[in-house]
Design a protein around this nucleic acid. Structure first.
Lengths: 146, 146
DNA sequence: CTAAGGCCTGTAGTCAGGTACGGAGTCAAG
DNA sequence: CTTGACTCCGTACCTGACTACAGGCCTTAG
C-alpha cells in the first residue's frame, strides 16, 4: 500500500493535480483526512479509482455516469452496468449517424465543387446560401445518370 | 423585400430571438440602425444569412468557421471554401474514428457480459477497474477459438 | 537556515453556443 | 387609455470538464 501526496497521485494517474481536486469536488474521489500536519495522503485505491475514471471516459462516459458506475458492484450489479453500457452504445450510434450525415453531405459538396466549371458559383457556398434551388451540375447530372 | 422585427426574423429562421442577438454580438449578423423610434428592422438578407448559419452548423461548422464562410464570395473564393470543407471533413473523420473505437470496445464488453456466467464479476466493471488482468472468459475463449 | 517547490483552500476563468433575466421603452388592438 | 406583447440593452447564467490563480502553510534539499 503505497502512500502518495496529491502531486504523485496525479502524476501516477497521468492527470493534473487540479483535475484530481476537481474529481474530489464532484464526489468521484474521497478526500482523505490529513495524515499529520495538513498534507493529505492517498493509497492505491485512489489511484485505481482515478484510472477507472480515465478509462470510462475513453469509453465515452460522462463524469456523472462514471459516478454511477463507481457505485456499482462487480458481483451484484452486472445488469445495471450492462444497461448503462448499452445506453451509451445507443448514444454513440446516434452521434455517429449524425456525423455520417454531415460527412456525406460535405463529401457531395466537395466532389461537386471539384467537378464543376470554375466559372460557376462555388457549389458549397451557393448551397449554403440557397439550398432550395438545387443547382444542376455536371456532377449531380453524372450521379443522376448513374 | 420584406421588413421584419427581430422576433419575426427569428421565427422565420427558426431560432430564438436571443440567438439572433448572440449572432450579432459574435459579428455574424449586422445590427441595422433603428428605422424609426428604437425598433430595428431586418430584410431578407438577414434571413438568408441566418439560414446560411443554421445550415453550415448542420454540416458541422463552428460559428467561427461560419464567420469565415460568410466572408467568402461564391465566385472568387471556391478554393478557400473547398479547403474549409475538406478540413471539416477530416475533423469529422477523426471524430468518427474515435467514436468507432469507443463503440467496438463497448460492444465487446457488453457481449462479454452477456455471454459469461453470472457467478463471475461483471466484465464491464472489472475491466474498468483492472484492465491489466485481461480476464479469460467463455466469450473471449470462443473468440480466440475462432 | 533559507529558498524552492509542493500542498492547502477558495474563487474565478476557459471553451461553445446559447439561454435567461431585469428594467425600460414602444407599439398595436380593443 | 390601457393592456399585453414585443423590443432594446446589458449582464449573468448554463453545461462539461477542466484550468488558473491567490495567498498562505509546509517540507525538503542544500
Amino acid at each position: 500500500m503505497t502512500s502518495m501526496t496529491i502531486g504523485r497521485l496525479a502524476a501516477a494517474a497521468e492527470v493534473g493535480v487540479e483535475t484530481v481536486r476537481y474529481y474530489q469536488r464532484r464526489g468521484l474521489l474521497a478526500v482523505p483526512e490529513p495524515t499529520h500536519g495538513q498534507v493529505r495522503h492517498y493509497g492505491d485505491g485512489a489511484l485505481a479509482r482515478l484510472r477507472f475514471i480515465r478509462r470510462a471516459q475513453q469509453l465515452g462516459f460522462s463524469l456523472d455516469e462514471i459516478a454511477d458506475l463507481l457505485g456499482l458492484d462487480e458481483h451484484t450489479d452486472r445488469n445495471a452496468a450492462r444497461a448503462l453500457a448499452k445506453e451509451k452504445l445507443a448514444q454513440i450510434d446516434e452521434r455517429m449517424a449524425r456525423l455520417s450525415a454531415m460527412r456525406s453531405a460535405l463529401t457531395e459538396l466537395v466532389s461537386c465543387c471539384e467537378h464543376t466549371s470554375t466559372t460557376q458559383p462555388c457549389p458549397i457556398l451557393h448551397t449554403l446560401a440557397h439550398p432550395d434551388e438545387r443547382q444542376s451540375t455536371a456532377y449531380s447530372k453524372s450521379i443522376a445518370a448513374g
